[in-house]
Amino acid sequence: MSVQTNSQIAGGVDAAREGAATTATSGESILLWRLASIVLFCLAWEIAGRIPINVAFPPFSEVVMAFGRIVADGTLPAAFLDTLQPLVIGVFLATAVGIVMGVGMGLREELEWAGVPVFVVMQAAPMAALIPLITFIYGIGLTAKVLSVIILALPVIALNGYKAVRNVSPSLRAMCRSFLGSRRQEIFKVILPDASPMIFAGLRLGISAGFVGVILAELLITPTGIGDLITYHRSIANYSEMYAAIATIILFAAITVGLLERIEIALFRPEKKEHA
């Protein structure tokens, strides 16, 4: 095979370059569209707030100013710290336990039998109903918030780990066996790397669920953090401040999850990188 396959190789590279070029130009216009979309949204909010459609619906500009006030007086940053602490601890624990359980269920049939139905029920059911109970048992401190995060984040992380292992390409596994890979090598060199994008996606969904858990815990019982900020400003009819707190936490959650998605593509999906 000394004859080089020049034409074919050049063709392949050209095609790849062409693809990259078209996505690069559309990338800029996507940014423009997003900007337009955000501006339109804020404008609509401003107008609706000025009409006003409801006394409790302040215009966008007032919410922005309220945001400035609660940042300046330090209540928002402090509340954020209060909220993020249980979130980080809870997500960390749920990740460690969830990935081990998920991968275990994917690899071993007895674990699959025992675990999967439980997590399926947990994921489909409104686990939030348990949060008041947790708060009554564990008090209104950190433990209750961490547990709230875990019960909401764990099922999706574990189930994604399980599905990820189950979805590993059978032909890659056969390849590993045909080249005499041991079970250990199959797990560490083929199954886990092939499963890691989906495991990471589970982590992203888990964090998203964790935000819900911690905010619910704060809104329902535990009067600290962002939830408390929301409740407090509502109770004294400081609606602009309340909206600012809500918008901040929702945007923060969305940006965190969005960033994780970017990281996911950069780390695990070389084939998608140029289309990102």
Binding site: S171, L172, M175, S178, P193, P270
Partner: peptide, 19 residues
């Protein structure tokens, strides 16, 4: 009785590690 070093397989779908 199983795969062996004297045989090597070429897969229809290539079975290359994407990473």
């Amino acid at each position: 009785t199983g795969p062996g070093p004297e045989r090597a397989f070429v897969f229809q779908d290539f079975a290359l590690l994407p990473w």
